[in-house]
Design a protein around this nucleic acid. Structure first.
Lengths: 124, 124
DNA sequence: ATATTTGCAAAGTGTTTGCACGTAA
DNA sequence: TTACGTGCAAACACTTTGCAAATAT
């Protein structure tokens, strides 16, 4: 556990924030100016491999964001204007697929993406 | 409407296939060997802008795929092994969010991603 | 002391762009 | 004929890698 790793972890700490790699770098650099992008990317990849953080994208892969809340299953509210995303701690389960709908797949997870306009973009 | 545009459209024609840009290029080049990657990208972007095709990513943005079935709302079955995706024409609607769950968002679309292992990867 | 992590700069992806040529209408 | 589409190659943004110096255990 090194100082730079701690800085990256801290940059991800806000539970329902979904930051880009560049934002993680900026936040980490604010605390530890000599940190390099390579270290940020390495650490993020390690965290993803460990299952601590989830790599997500809600705009068809044009922007990649890191979801620190990987351990708690949840859905997402995504703003189609600004790209921001919020977690939805959704009580109800996702409706199950019938055997025919499963098309031979063995399904072991599912999540819903709700697309819309966030409050800030609506008023802007 | 040019020959290269037609070749790109044809490469996307299978309704529940989700191809990458490179696969579109390969398929188009099989028919029209002198086609260039730039044209493929240009055309794909045009199709996305027209709403004919939807840009998607199911692996956190590491692979981008084009979904030709943009006009019909549907959900997706995604294989976490091979990255392949199939459409799910889902009769049931997505459960609505309560006002509190919406967190000020104005939601206008939603879709479910079912993750699992496809039949081929299961037997492999 | 040894193995691991860092920073830098360079290489690698996949995608986009500028410009001259070719082609559609 | 006139504007638009194409191909090429260069530019681009983002991410990964090789290596030597620095650091953790």
């Amino acid at each position: 556990m090194t100082a730079q790793r701690r800085a990256v972890a801290e940059a991800l700490s806000a539970p329902d924030l979904h930051v880009t790699a560049e934002e993680v770098f900026e936040r980490a650099a604010a605390v530890l100016p000599e940190i390099s992008r390579a270290t940020v990317y390495n650490t993020l990849n390690d965290l993803v491999a460990l299952g601590e953080v989830r790599l997500t994208s809600f705009d068809g892969g044009q922007t990649r964001r890191y979801d620190p809340n990987a351990r708690v299953p949840h859905h997402h509210l995504v703003c189609t204007k600004c790209g921001g995303a919020k977690d939805v701690l959704f009580g109800h389960a996702v409706p199950p697929l019938s055997k025919k709908e499963r098309q031979g797949y063995e399904v072991d997870a599912s999540h819903i993406v709700f697309e819309g306009i966030c409050e800030r973009c609506k008023s802007a």
